[in-house]
Design a protein around this nucleic acid. Structure first.
Lengths: 207, 207
DNA sequence: ATTTGCCTGTTAATAGAATAACAAGGCAAT
DNA sequence: ATTGCCTTGTTATTCTATTAACAGGCAAAT
C-alpha cells in the first residue's frame, strides 16, 4: 500500500486511535464504528472516517472497523519494524515524567538512555533507564543506535545540545524547552512549550 | 482598543514574543525589528508583523518596535489585572515540573495549590506550593479563587476530575493526560499528549 | 534633490484542516 | 420485494493559518 505523506494532524490522531483501540480490544470488543471512536476521543465521526480513508483502510458496512486489523495497520504506518530508540536529556521532573509514561509500555518506541550533568543522577537507573553523564552523549547515541532525543533540560542549553545531537546522528528532536530551536537539516523537530499552553488557557478563559 | 478574538496560533506566539522581548530587554535593548524577533523564534518576519498588526500595535519605521511598550501591550491582552490562580492536580513528576517552571516567575499566572491522594505528598510544600488532599478540591478552589486547573494525574481519573472541576467553578483546564476530555460548557479546554508528540516525531523521522 | 535601501502595515493568494454533503451498500422489518 | 435506517467512503465547501506581494515612509548616501 503506497502512502503519501500523511497530514500532521492525522498522524497525531492515529496515535490516539491506536491507544483507544487497544483499550477497546482489551475490553473484548472486536469491531467498532467511526462514531464510537469519535465519542471516545471527542472528535467527529467524519474526521475519523477521513483519517481511516487516508491510511487506506476499509471497514465493513454493518460491523464497522475490525479493531485488530486497524491497530496493526496503524502500526505499520507509524512504527518501524526494528523500533526506535530514544534518549531523554535532562533528568529533572520532566525527564522523569517521560520515562515513567513510557515505562513497561510495550511499544516500538523505547527510552534506552538518559543524560544529565548532576552527579547525583548519573550512573543510576530510573525505572530501568540508565543515566549517563552528558559528556558521553555522542558515544552512547552511536553505541546504542539512538534515533530520537527528548530535550528536557534548562532552556539555555537547548540550542547547543541540538547541534551536538544532529552531529551525533539523531534524526528527530522533541523539544520541551521554552526556547524554540532552529530547524536543522535532516532532523525532524517537534516542540512544545508548557508555559505557552498555560498562557493560552488564561487568554481564552479571559476572552 | 477594541480587540476581536485573536487566532489561536497568534495567542500562542504572543506568549513567546513576550518572553523573548523580556530577554532582550534584560540585555539592554530598547527597540527591535520584526526580523530580529523572527530569528529568535525561528519563524518568519511577516508572521511577526501580522501578529503585531492583529493586536493593534505599531512600530516606528526606522527603529522597529519599542520592546517595553510591546511587552506591556501583550500583558493587557493575555493577562488579567488581578492575575489568575492555578491549581496543579497530581503531584507526580509532571505536576512538579509545572510547579518548578512557574517558580519565582513573577507573572500574573500563579500556581497556588496542588492536590494529590498520596499521603506522602499531602500537607507538604513543593517550591512554595502547598499540597492538599484531593478530597478538599472544591473547598480550596473556592476559598482561594482558583480559575485554572492543570490535570497531571493518571489518565483514568481525568474525566471525573474534570466534572468536579467544572462544578467547583474552574474556567479553564489544561489536560496533560493522554485521555482526551469532552468539552464542557463554559470551561476552556486545552490538551497535550506527550506520547502522541513522541509518536509523531517517530513517524516523520521514518517518512 | 534624488535615489537607494530597508523598514512597516496591509491586502491578496495559497496551503492545510475541519466540516458538510451526499452517493452507495446492506441488513432488518414490513 | 420494497422501504427505511444506519453505516461507510469520498467529494465539495468552509474555515483557519501561513505565506507572498506590494504600497508607503523615512533616513542615509549620492
Amino acid at each position: 500500500m503506497i502512502m503519501n505523506r500523511l497530514p500532521d494532524k492525522t498522524v497525531e490522531r492515529l496515535s490516539q486511535y491506536r491507544r483507544t483501540l487497544n483499550n477497546q480490544l482489551a475490553k473484548g470488543k472486536t469491531h467498532i464504528f467511526s462514531h464510537e471512536i469519535a465519542n471516545l476521543l471527542h472528535i467527529t465521526p467524519v474526521q475519523v472516517r477521513r483519517d481511516i480513508m487516508l491510511i487506506g483502510y476499509s471497514g465493513t458496512l454493518r460491523k464497522g472497523y475490525d479493531i485488530k486489523e486497524m491497530i496493526e495497520l496503524i502500526g505499520t504506518i507509524i512504527d518501524t519494524d526494528q523500533g526506535v530508540k530514544i534518549a531523554v536529556i535532562g533528568m529533572g521532573n520532566l525527564g522523569k515524567a517521560f520515562i515513567h509514561y513510557m515505562y513497561e509500555k510495550q511499544t516500538k518506541l523505547k527510552i534506552v538512555a538518559a543524560f544529565d550533568i548532576n552527579p547525583d543522577k548519573i550512573d543510576k537507573t530510573y525505572e530501568d533507564v540508565y543515566c549517563y553523564h552528558l559528556d558521553r552523549l555522542e558515544e552512547i547515541i552511536k553505541e546504542l543506535g539512538i534515533g530520537i532525543a527528548i530535550i528536557a533540560t534548562p532552556p539555555e542549553v537547548a540550542s547547543p545540545l541540538a547541534d551536538r545531537l544532529k552531529e551525533a546522528g539523531i534524526r528527530g528532536i522533541l523539544n520541551y524547552t521554552p526556547r524554540p530551536l532552529s530547524p536543522r537539516e535532516g532532523v525532524y523537530l517537534e516542540e512544545h512549550d508548557m508555559i505557552t499552553s498555560l498562557e493560552k488557557v488564561a487568554y481564552f478563559v479571559k476572552a
